[in-house]
């Protein structure tokens, strides 16, 4: 398994790289990365109904659509993001989707356990500590690969999180789009009650995935194919408002997605 630490300063590049990983033929891969302050919305979401765009503009928070499903999340450098690509033929992605999520979230739970935090999975794919959410995840089934990614709140700016993820009342979620579920969230540093040893958590997450995927993680640079795909996806999609904000639907789509 390859271990990538690719990280851009622009969230749109980071999310474009996620899709590039999924399209490229890089084989089993684990990526650990962080985003600058960003509202990341799900594939089928209506941006205005999920995010307060005015606040985002005011505070310089980017709004980027991801290619996986689910609801809106807030990222900043106080989050740890992990992404995994496995072949569709892999046994780990067989069977019920809830079981697939359970298997792929197990490394995260294991890592938290090592830190003395008892976490569990709720709502299929969210990581909870007690009754409070500390992380979410979502996935995309590609032609040849299963792509899974998630985030953990370590010491993110929760005030900004709620500011950004509280849309203006007048924007309702239109029929057909996916609405976010709003649940209480907290940072892992709050749960532990002391500053988090982030490098240790990262190492534990890597070890967790190594165990679950039965494969040693080898630090690698992204492939040329991945970088080219990323550039192309950024130019044609992730740098564009039609993708991030409108997520154009219906007649005028003309196969652009």
């Amino acid at each position: 398994m390859r271990l990538l630490r690719v990280q851009f300063k622009d969230a749109r590049h980071n999310l474009a790289f996620e899709e590039a990983m999924c399209l490229a033929s890089g084989g089993p891969t684990l990526r650990l990365w962080r985003n600058p302050p960003t509202a990341v919305i799900g594939y089928a979401q209506f941006a205005r109904a999920e995010v307060n765009l005015e606040t985002c503009m005011q505070y310089g928070v980017q709004v980027v659509r991801r290619h996986t499903g689910g609801g809106a999340v807030y990222h900043d450098y106080g989050n740890l993001n992990y992404s995994v690509v496995v072949p569709r033929s892999s046994g780990i992605v067989k069977g019920k989707l809830s079981s697939v999520y359970r298997r792929l979230l197990a490394p995260v739970l294991l890592a938290l356990e090592e830190l003395g935090v008892a976490a569990d999975i709720r709502d299929t794919n969210s990581v909870f500590v007690g009754g409070t959410k500390v992380g979410g995840s979502s996935a995309h089934l590609g032609e040849t690969a299963f792509f899974f990614h998630g985030t953990l709140l370590l010491n993110a700016d929760l005030t900004m999180l709620w500011r950004v993820l509280t849309p203006l009342k007048e924007y309702e979620c239109p029929a057909g789009s996916v609405a976010s579920r709003r649940v209480p969230v907290t940072n892992l540093s709050e749960v532990i009650g002391c500053p988090l040893n982030v490098p240790r958590l990262e190492a534990l997450v890597v070890r967790g995935f190594e165990k679950v995927l039965c494969s040693h993680a080898i630090p690698t640079e992204p492939s040329r194919e991945e970088m080219e795909l990323e550039m192309n996806l950024f130019d044609t999609k992730y740098s564009r408002d039609w993708w991030n904000l409108e997520g154009r639907m219906g007649r005028d789509v003309r196969g652009q997605m």
Partner: peptide
Amino acid sequence: VKWLKAEGDYVQAGEGLFTIETEK
């Protein structure tokens, strides 16, 4: 969650037709 083609559109074999979402 998304139709990538509309009625009357031409689609090539292997081209995306629609996107589904289930359990995220």
